[in-house]
Design a protein around this nucleic acid. Structure first.
Length: 866
DNA sequence: CGAAAATAAATGTGTTGTACGACAG
DNA sequence: ACACATTTATTTTCG
């Protein structure tokens, strides 16, 4: 164990780092003894280091603590406080310890702080190269390591070990520095001996099998020499060889993409005609996968294709899809094309379901579940599923549904970077002084306080030489200030669950602008914008799209951005890109960022975690699962060594406590089950017998649910299906759903009745030979019959139309068709109620016209008021 | 002392998010 | 339910 004094010093040094990052004012309470005695601190750390190296096993916590202590002597903005320490040599030990405590990605970042040329000895050059994963061809030791990496023969590692021990022994009495580095190298190497890519892979197949994969892995930006603990446990659980399905439950930033890459490669190597389906339920995800692993796998000979909405394959590409090894698709898109390709569906022998918790989604979960059920219900092919998701307590159950067993659930809590949590708390009886309680659920060394984190002095500004204090009574104001203060340590995301209202995205944006304009005592995000013309270009772009009055245009002039689902996809991508390339470092956002792609963010400030629930007429926390996903974005592996999450509102503390401790996270039951169990309950209560008349007499919202069941059934049945087979085909599918899997007996009966009733509605269409038109139209039964009645194909307007902007035409389409469909009216009233607006069909016509003629948002006065 | 400014209390207002969707020429 | 904004009432400040 590390001595009490030393761990206290380490804890203090941690808090001191944050103290520097946030430019906090002098604090008389927290004097940092290690600052006045840096030599003693340094010597104790190194004393501890030797002890750790002597008996390295099972001391990860201590190692990490010492690493953190040592690193401050080399970090930017901190190292200037110390004299007489060789900063570059020092970083070797800090980074080395990070490596030893399983934080290889952090070691990688630290090792890049100093150029290789700062190291002159053979042994320290070797260590830095090892950590940077960039071998020097001139260095004898590197050459040996490289031999091992390229061939996988342990003999080279043994030889390397011998060399290092020789160097160490030789230096024992003469050169302490070389001795200690060699010592470190020796320990690192014995870890590497057991923990390297070859070692883990050759247990499952031959070196020849893996060679191309390993070679490609070496070429990556962060070369894979070994696996993260989460990846290792997936491999140990048999992700490669197991025939049954597997569920992977891993946090964000734990390297699941790399695992999938490995799995697909393995599949391909075993059978070069293999077919893998990767279901990626977000466009952004699909396109990111295309960029990253589609490309990586291509180098290994795996052919792939990515399809999602707005990315329609050409005819030539369509042929390719059928011959490709890997198809990356959104579930909806897959369903859409699957019909047109015969036998296509049967070919996949490995199905990867990413973001599996989507099963619970009210709109899309049902389709997802039914698609998986269909894939599962085909017994002609043996199919393995890999179900990937965030934390789901009942993941065992899902895995069993997909054909796995209790041994094939991989749970990992490992993250490549650490997350620290800070709760902003009011100092009792004080005059508006706040401190940050960091890691409030840990014990004293890891838990520390930052006093004076937020005080009046942050809010002073001058108006004509008179000092004033900016009002900071509200959480909104404090959240914005904390976010701006955090800019010194890296990119900041300020999170709120809503867009509008007086504490949503736009209100926060306005508040940020106000604070910056007032000139209070905090960093200005504009000073953190890299590249000269960024602001000017963005402003020009946003103005062209939204007009100069839009709040995003104001915010961007101050160096900030925001991001939510009302922004068009292409604008979002531009914004994401600005954050990804770190040209802009301050962003205000909603859940879009949690659901979206990976961005390098150091600090997440949670302004609120609750949202108004209309039916309950109360505020309630958003899904813990989503929050977990969100906080996981803090501290991106390979970019940061740790992330910080700051919670501003005390009423969110207990929610975030659940997130930190992984308590009370919601089960995923699938939306179908939710519907069925609700219907069952109501039927039992009211002693009703289910019938189509009852189903169709429900409100519009419920009917839309029934629609989605219909659509899945329609997808399921072939165009030329025999009416006699309808019932059995449907029953077969239903037996495979997750809903069925979980149902009680009575729920199961309800489910059976429900779908067979819907089958009866489809049957007449099949008998009338009309089914294929319905199927091809992709619409619901309801919509199909409504439109059929309304279309008036004999109307002469279809013949005479020559101008898409003509009033006659637009009137015809909107009044005589669109608004005659009951759903349209329902949607519009719903929209008006929700937005307290009063849009009429003539407004819609005006917007349509404006849109057809090519106007942008800003050009149109109606869309602006809408 | 009295007006202006600051503060306190009372009243009024608003109030989730995200995502996806044919084919062929 | 709750946060925040606005209005109104009350207290403090300061010329």
């Amino acid at each position: 164990m590390i001595s009490k004094d030393l761990s206290l010093w380490i804890a203090q040094s941690e808090s001191w780092q944050t103290f520097i990052d946030f430019n906090l004012p002098e604090d008389k309470e927290a004097n940092y003894p290690f600052l006045t005695r840096p030599d003693d601190f340094y010597i104790s750390l190194f004393g501890e280091l030797y002890e750790i190296l002597e008996k390295v096993r099972g001391r990860n916590e201590d190692m990490l603590a010492v690493a953190k202590g040592i690193e401050i002597y080399s970090l930017k903005r901190k190292r200037d406080f110390f004299k007489g320490v060789n900063q570059s040599n020092n970083i070797l030990f800090a980074a080395g310890l990070y490596y030893l405590s399983d934080y290889a990605a952090s070691a990688f970042i630290l090792s890049k702080l100093f150029p290789i040329d700062s190291f002159t000895e053979e042994i320290d050059r070797f260590v830095i190269c090892f950590l940077k994963r960039e071998l020097d061809t001139e260095n004898r030791l590197c050459v040996l390591l490289n031999r091992f990496l390229t061939t996988g023969r342990r003999i080279h590692l043994r030889e390397l070990q011998g060399e290092i021990i020789a160097i160490k022994n030789e230096a024992y009495n003469s050169t302490p520095y070389i001795y200690s580095v060699a010592f470190l190298a020796e320990v690192m190497l014995s870890k590497f001996f057991l923990n390297n890519i070859w070692n883990d892979l050759t247990r499952h197949n031959t070196r020849i099998h893996w060679r191309p994969y390993v070679e490609a892995s070496m070429q990556k930006a962060f070369p894979i020499w070994d696996f993260f603990p989460s990846q290792k446990s997936a491999i140990e659980k048999g992700i490669l060889n197991s025939l049954s399905s597997i569920a992977l439950q891993t946090p964000t930033s734990s390297g699941k993409t790399a695992i999938c890459e490995l799995l697909i490669y393995d599949e391909y190597r075993k059978n070069s005609n293999c077919k893998v389906l990767y279901l990626a339920p977000f466009r952004a995800l699909a396109s990111e996968l295309k960029q990253t692993f589609g490309r990586n796998l291509a180098r290994l000979g795996v052919t792939s294709k990515t399809i999602y909405g707005g990315n329609i394959p050409t005819a030539a590409e369509r042929d390719l899809i059928q011959n490709v090894n890997l198809l990356i698709a959104t579930p909806e898109k897959f369903v859409a094309i699957e019909n047109s390709l015969s036998e296509f569906f049967n070919e996949f022998n490995l199905v990867i379901c990413d973001e599996g918790h989507l099963l619970d989604d009210g709109h899309r979960g049902l389709n997802y579940e039914l698609l998986l059920s269909r894939l599962k219900s085909n017994f002609e092919v043996t199919r393995k599923f890999v179900f990937i998701s965030a934390i789901i307590p009942n993941i065992d159950s899902i895995n069993r549904w997909l054909g796995g067993n209790d041994d094939t659930v991989v749970r990992s809590l490992y993250r490549a970077t650490e997350i620290e949590y800070g709760f902003l708390k009011h100092v009792e009886k004080s005059d508006e002084v706040y401190f940050l309680d960091v890691n409030p659920f840990k014990n004293i060394p890891q838990r520390y306080k930052l006093n004076n984190f937020l005080t009046k002095s942050d809010y002073t500004y001058k108006v004509s030489n008179k000092e004033r204090i900016y009002k900071f009574g509200t959480f909104k104001v404090k959240a914005v200030t904390v976010g701006l203060k955090a800019l010194n340590s890296g990119s900041v995301a300020l999170f709120t669950p809503s867009k509008g209202g007086n504490s949503g995205v736009s209100a926060l944006a306005l508040e940020a602008i106000n604070q910056i304009k007032a000139g209070i005592n905090i960093p200005n995000p504009a000073h953190f914008v890299t590249k000269r013309n960024t602001i000017r270009d963005l402003l020009e772009y946003f103005t062209a799209i939204f007009g100069s009055k839009y709040s995003l245009c104001q915010l961007v002039t101050f160096g900030g951005l925001f991001h939510h689902g009302d922004l068009p996809q292409y604008v979002r991508e531009v914004i994401e890109d600005m954050i990804r390339t770190e040209r802009v470092k301050f962003i205000i956002c909603t859940n879009t960022l949690a659901e979206g792609v990976n961005l390098p963010i150091r600090t997440i400030v949670i302004s609120s975690s609750r949202r108004f629930n209309e039916t309950k007429n109360a505020l309630e926390p958003i899904n813990l699962r989503d929050l977990k996903n969100l906080v996981g974005r803090a501290g991106r592996a390979g970019k940061e060594t740790k992330g910080l999450v700051i919670v501003v509102n005390p009423s969110d503390f207990s929610t975030i406590e659940n997130v930190i401790k992984d308590q009370n996270i919601e089960d995923v039951n699938g939306y179908l089950y939710t519907i069925v169990s609700n219907i069952s309950r109501i039927l039992a209560q009211r002693r009703l017998v289910l019938s189509n008349d009852i189903l169709e007499a429900q409100d519009e919202e419920f009917k839309q649910l029934i629609d989605s069941i219909d659509i899945s059934l329609i997808d399921l049945l072939g165009e030329e299906v025999d009416p006699e087979d309808v019932k059995s085909t449907i029953q077969n599918l239903i037996d495979q759903t997750f809903a069925k899997f979980q149902s009680t007996e009575s729920e199961s009966t309800t489910l059976n009745t429900l779908v067979s009733l819907r089958g009866e509605r489809i049957k007449p269409l099949i008998e009338a030979n009309e089914f294929k038109y319905l199927k091809q139209s992709g619409s619901t039964i309801r919509l199909y019959s409504q439109i059929q009645n309304l279309l008036q194909l004999d109307n002469e307007i279809w013949q005479t139309l020559d101008n898409p902007l003509s009033n006659d035409w637009i009137n015809f389409v909107v009044d005589d068709i669109l608004f005659k469909i009951p759903t349209t009216g329902f949607r519009l009233t719903d929209f008006n109620k929700r937005n307290k607006s009063n849009i009429t069909s003539s407004d819609i016509k005006a917007i349509l016209k404006s849109w057809i003629s090519g106007s942008w948002f800003q050009d149109d006065t109606i869309t602006k008021t809408v």
